[in-house]
């Protein structure tokens, strides 16, 4: 579903992605972790073209990124992206947020899109909040709207960039619960997170990145109980400490 082969990327002189080779199978859930600045965001932002790669091969849903034949706008409709900072449209209600792309991109009838949107919002536990503006919602509620906004497009892949790190601790689990639900329905997911509970519960693989490179890959069991490298051990001891 997603295949990186020898991917490199630079920001000016900074080599952010170093020879990344990595693939994600359909219905697989992969968790990406690593210290801040290690290139995790850049890695998943490449998948939907928010960043472009310098060399190597990146194939998503059978289409090679950077190819003339690949219609990026079309490909993006198949990929949901959940941001750390939610990025809901502040001038639109929860329901308008989740129906915007279905109506304008998928060209679904408004009434149909709205009933699907209500259903999706109810599913993430926001049945009472259809007409609320983002500013009237808590962080956890906003992030759930953001997830619903992606799901309403019926994507094939969902990408999450630290979806819970901007949240107060008491709101983290409500968002993780929704993500677990999405994973259990068989979504192909790539999730940048340090939430080990989530990784253990639904991830098939954990990818550990440091300084722009994939340093270690393994099942959550292997990775958390028996990290193979010094760097992953150091990283784990740091996030376990708090």
């Amino acid at each position: 579903m997603i295949e990186f082969r020898g991917v490199n990327k630079w920001f000016g002189a900074l080599h952010v992605l170093k020879d990344i080779t990595l693939s994600v199978e359909p219905r697989e859930v992969v968790v990406v972790c690593g210290p801040s600045g290690s290139g995790k965001s850049t890695l998943i932002r490449c998948i939907n073209g928010l960043e472009t790669i310098k060399d190597g091969r990146l194939v998503v849903d059978g289409q090679r990124l950077g190819d003339r034949a690949t219609n990026m706008t079309e490909l993006r409709t198949e990929i949901g992206f959940v941001f750390q900072s939610f990025n809901l449209y502040p001038h639109k209600t929860a329901l308008e947020n989740v129906t915007l792309a279905p109506i304008h991109v998928r060209k679904i009838q408004r009434t149909e899109a709205e009933s699907a949107g209500r259903e999706m919002l109810a599913k993430v536990g926001l049945a009472e909040k259809f007409n609320a503006y983002p500013a009237e919602l808590s962080g956890g509620q906003q992030q759930r709207v953001a997830i619903a906004r992606c799901l309403c497009m019926r994507p094939k892949i969902m990408l999450f960039d630290e979806p819970t790190s901007a949240l107060d601790p008491e709101m983290i689990s409500e968002v993780l619960d929704v993500m677990v639900g999405v994973a259990e329905e068989g979504m192909t997911m790539m999730v940048v997170t340090h939430e080990m509970g989530f990784a253990r519960k639904v991830a098939q693989r954990v990818v550990f990145m440091d300084e722009g490179a994939v340093v270690e890959t393994g099942t959550p069991e292997e990775f958390f109980s028996d990290p193979k490298t010094d760097r992953s051990r150091a990283f784990l001891s740091k996030i376990l400490r708090h």
Partner: peptide
């Protein structure tokens, strides 16, 4: 308008004109 807004619109597959009309200009 914060870049995150454009990125969210971009990520959901809105065209350049739709991003402008639906997301950027109203804000």
């Amino acid at each position: 308008v914060p870049t995150g807004q454009v990125e969210a619109a971009l990520a959901s597959g809105l065209s350049q004109w739709q991003r402008m009309r639906q997301v950027v200009l109203p804000q």
